[in-house]
Amino acid sequence: MMEASQRKLSAAVVLLLLLIVAAEMGPVQAGECLSQSKTFKGWCFNSDRCNDKCLKESSAYSGGKCRGLYFLCFCITPCAASLE
């Protein structure tokens, strides 16, 4: 009986982790490159705060958003078009 509960709990944890990873690997806008903010401190739960920090950090950044499993602030810059 205890083994069945542990299996269900393990399966639920694995499923939750897969969902989190899948959500974080979602699409990035075309032509958008991300680099971690050097001035944002703490966990990034509010993309508006991250956006404001990135805009103040450099004029090269067009904004920012919270990303990743560790809730980090990433600043957005335009990517150079790749030649294929």
Rank of each mutant, 00 (worst) to 15 (best):
A30K: 13
A30D: 08
A30V: 07
A30M: 03
G31I: 05
G31Y: 05
G31L: 05
E32T: 15
E32P: 03
S35P: 00
S35E: 15
S35Y: 06
Q36T: 12
Q36M: 13
Q36I: 13
K38N: 04
K38L: 09
T39W: 00
T39H: 06
T39E: 08
T39Y: 04
T39K: 10
F40V: 06
F40A: 02
F40Q: 01
F40C: 03
K41W: 03
K41Y: 08
K41L: 12
G42I: 05
G42F: 04
G42R: 01
W43M: 01
W43A: 03
C44W: 03
C44M: 07
C44Y: 04
F45C: 01
F45I: 07
N46Y: 10
N46A: 06
N46Q: 10
S47K: 07
S47F: 08
D48I: 13
R49S: 14
R49K: 13
R49N: 14
C50E: 07
C50I: 11
C50H: 08
C50G: 08
N51R: 12
N51L: 06
D52K: 13
D52S: 12
D52H: 05
K53S: 15
K53N: 15
K53E: 15
C54G: 11
C54F: 10
C54L: 10
L55G: 02
L55R: 15
L55W: 00
K56C: 00
K56V: 07
K56T: 11
K56A: 14
E57M: 05
E57C: 07
S58V: 07
S58Y: 04
S58C: 06
S58W: 04
S59A: 14
S59N: 14
A60R: 08
A60M: 02
S62T: 15
S62R: 15
S62N: 06
G63R: 13
G64A: 09
G64C: 10
K65C: 08
K65F: 12
K65V: 12
K65Q: 14
C66Q: 04
C66V: 07
C66D: 04
C66A: 07
C66F: 03
R67M: 13
R67P: 00
R67I: 11
R67N: 11
R67H: 14
R67Q: 14
G68N: 05
G68W: 02
L69V: 14
L69Y: 09
L69F: 15
Y70I: 09
Y70P: 00
Y70N: 13
Y70E: 10
